[in-house]
Amino acid sequence: MTNTIEITKAQTSKIHEVDFENLSFGKVFTDHMFICDFKNGEWQQPEITPYAPLTLDPSARVFHYGQAVFEGMKAFKDDANKVWLFRPEDNLLRINKSAERLAMPEFPKDVFMEGLKALINLDEAWVKPGFGNSLYIRPFVIATEPAIAASPALEYKFLIICSPAQSYYSGDVRVLIAEQFSRSANGGVGFAKAAGNYAAQFYPTSLANQEGFQQIIWTDADTHEFLEEAGTMNVFFRINDTLVTAPTNERILDGITRKSIIQIAQDSGIAVEVRPIKVSELIEASKSGALKEIFGSGTAAVVSPISAFSYKGDVFEIPKDVKSFSSIFKEKLLNIQYNKSEDPYGWRQSI
């Protein structure tokens, strides 16, 4: 494999056809994409080409056995029109960890970083400045070998596509605590960003939507007693002035935004407890008035306040607090991402 990336530029740009004031998340894509094939036991020549459909054999193993992993990350533009990434090496580490769990090959760090930066430089005009505006970046790997034998593929594609984005969720979110369905189980692939994890959430989430809830707070598969994640996000609970979140394990995604919030909270003098938390504890805290906040965290949503939760037919409203932890964390995180404040952690990388 050579680190030299072959670049074929698009003849014309689609950017003038896009209404950046009215973007639907993940439906508009930039002019180029990064692509690299894995064949004969190694990654081949990486390329950046005009964004276009793929041609795959109907027997490509991804269609039959679900060998597909992905990441979510963002690029941000500051007031001086300089573009920044946020903790990109963490995303590479996680996609390679996900790939390993699904018996897929890891992707080299140097080629990933070079390709990512070259791609964003080509499509830099798609990164709009201003809080809430960003370029959502989706690296992913799929099994492409044309064979339907139930075994790991020998051929794969690694791609990066980009989509201009505004805020992922608008307003607060009402959630239903899972009593029957599970997001993941012990020994499974819950910690990985495997495509099938998300497909499995769609049906129970659609049932929650019918009851007027936007998302589900998932509970452990064994007992449904412990709170784990909220929809596609990690979840935090503020009980009095202590921030509580579940520990990562083989069922829970090691969220990069989650890790960042924990670090910011600790450095802000806020008590943080990373421990299992029961549904019963949450309900008791709500009834006693000790529950001040619930919020989700993730790359797409950043921080998403939860205004109410339901369990066994009972709905528990969460009071609004103008000095919420979630608003403090979001502001500090965005200030780092958009180069409006110092970055004492070295999370921000220039393009």
Rank of each mutant, 00 (worst) to 15 (best):
K109V: 05
K259Q: 15
F236H: 01
F158M: 11
I120K: 02
K82L: 09
L159S: 10
G296T: 12
S350H: 13
R174T: 07
E331R: 12
S151C: 15
I148W: 08
K97H: 13
A200F: 06
G212H: 13
E225G: 08
E47R: 15
W43V: 03
V173Q: 00
R238A: 11
G26T: 08
V303F: 03
K323E: 11
K332H: 10
T219M: 10
R87G: 00
D321C: 10
Q201L: 13
E293G: 00
H64T: 06
Q11R: 14
K259G: 15
Y198Q: 08
Y198L: 06
V173N: 00
F20V: 12
S59T: 15
V302W: 01
F226N: 08
T2P: 14
E293P: 01
A300G: 03
A52N: 10
A103E: 12
K117W: 11
F29R: 06
A200Q: 13
F140K: 10
G296A: 13
G41P: 11
A301H: 06
T49I: 15
F316N: 06
I283T: 11
I306E: 02
R251G: 01
T55S: 10
N186R: 15
E331P: 00
I264C: 02
V303R: 00
Y169M: 09
T232D: 04
F191W: 10
N234F: 02
V315G: 05
G346D: 05
A147F: 10
L93S: 06
N186F: 14
N133P: 05
D57V: 08
A300N: 03
T205P: 00
K320I: 11
E342R: 08
E21F: 15
P50G: 13
V141P: 00
D79L: 09
S182V: 08
V244M: 04
